[in-house]
Design a protein around this nucleic acid. Structure first.
Lengths: 244, 244
DNA sequence: CGTCGCTTTGATCATGATCAAGGGATGTGG
DNA sequence: CCACATCCCTTGATCATGATCAAAGCGACG
């Protein structure tokens, strides 16, 4: 047993579910936090049409990728949480397809970034590629599961469960509550529902004592009942078992 | 057993949009067709919970990945067309999360499969990994765009455009028509709409002379008008430009 | 010839959008 | 310290979109 750096950052926690990380790799990946950028809340992390020479991984905070419909409505295409890939276009010499906006303020404990290039450094190159591929795989599963939240039963009621489960993977102090990064308006944009309707649904869930959101903190009182109501299964978050 | 290496298979066409393929690679990838499996229409290609030792790529035909909600409704999570990755769980020693069902009958010109393992063979290993990663990237974009079709404007009217565009990428004899692989019921399951409603929407589009579907052949009469109506942009299908 | 799978259409009902108004917290300038 | 502005949440009333229930048409095929 060696001297122990921080064992668990979001990125290493997430990857550990997917791959068996060597102790050395954990240290390397934890050091990614050094590559920081200052971005304010509601500012663009990535600008549509620009070229980036690296691949970005979100280390802390939350960000959204969205597009604007021609009638002015906004549509969230992705919500990134710590440990998630944000852009891979840098791996190809391609322009970013969408802008990406920070939901959290920046600063010492704010939204930080790492490049996949630096993920590759310190690990053998092919191994680094594999790690990025694993992250990308998570994206596919998540996007696919987004269909469930949107199309599926209990319209949108599984949304909070998705956030909870994703945050649990990367570590939560409390197993049933988390800080809600989205306003009700954004939840509507993510789910294709109107703001009043989101509000009423949450109100209903609160009345049923399943969920409460206060002061930007969501508390899931009855995960079981809500899962049944929303037809939610967390199987899509089950770890891969990669041969070390 | 055709001796002649066809220059353009769906897989190489699709990859060519994303990567610069070396002539030798094209030949190798075309030969993937040799690894065939016999699967009948409506039969499972992949069974949920089973383990597979390879990664599957769909060469011909169409297949769907779906889940059943507890009220019995069916929900399509993915529609795979030729050149698409079907399962990557084989790359990890993981069980398949969902079953996958063939939409087309099998046979000499039916649904064929290739393993990503064989994609790796004949190309340098890291290069092969990259190709698989590119395919996986396409999945992310597509799944992300699925949100558009589902949540976005013109509820479901962009669906036909998505299929058209994806099929154009891998090659179509006619630029505005294609063979429709889905029944109206399945379209409903994909979009979260009821069968009668899908039918009425199509009926409306036909009355407006934008789209007609007859004998399983869809004809898009006015791509421009339909794109505007559905808020469809095909930018997400723009090629990466990978440094050769 | 009858069954089956797929499409078509109608009538009614419910979910969720839209429009509208107000409330509470936080912040900012006078 | 107050006026006021802004952002976000809350709630009500009405309206439209799409679900549900029901029935029938229509090929294909054994």
């Amino acid at each position: 047993m060696t001297a122990k750096p921080r064992v668990a950052t979001p990125l290493t926690r997430k990857l550990s579910r997917v791959v068996t990380l060597a102790p050395g790799e954990i240290g390397t990946l934890n050091n990614l936090q050094s590559t920081t950028r200052i971005i304010r809340r509601n500012r663009e992390i990535i600008t549509k049409g620009r070229k980036y020479d690296t691949v970005f991984i979100l280390i802390d905070g939350a960000s959204i990728r969205c597009r604007i419909l021609h009638d002015g409505r906004r549509q969230l295409l992705n919500i990134a949480l710590p440990g998630d890939l944000i852009v891979v276009s840098g791996a190809f010499s391609e322009r970013a397809l969408y802008s990406i906006t920070a939901l959290s303020d920046c600063g010492p404990s704010g939204t930080l970034f790492a490049t996949a290039q630096s993920v590759r450094q310190g690990t053998e190159a092919r191994r680094g590629d594999l790690l990025v591929f694993c992250l990308r795989n998570c994206d596919v599963r998540r996007a696919s599961d987004r269909c469930r939240a949107t199309i599926g039963a209990g319209t949108g009621r599984g949304f909070l469960l998705e956030l909870l489960t994703r945050l649990q993977v990367i570590g939560l102090p409390d197993e049933r509550s988390f800080r809600m990064p989205l306003t009700q308006e954004l939840m509507g944009d993510a789910l294709g529902l109107s703001l009043p309707h989101v509000n009423r649904t949450l109100r209903q869930l609160r009345d049923d004592e399943l969920v409460s959101i206060q002061e930007h903190v969501a508390i899931i009182n009855d995960v079981e009942a809500l899962s049944a109501l929303a037809d939610f299964s967390r199987s899509y978050l089950e770890p891969f078992c990669l041969p070390a």
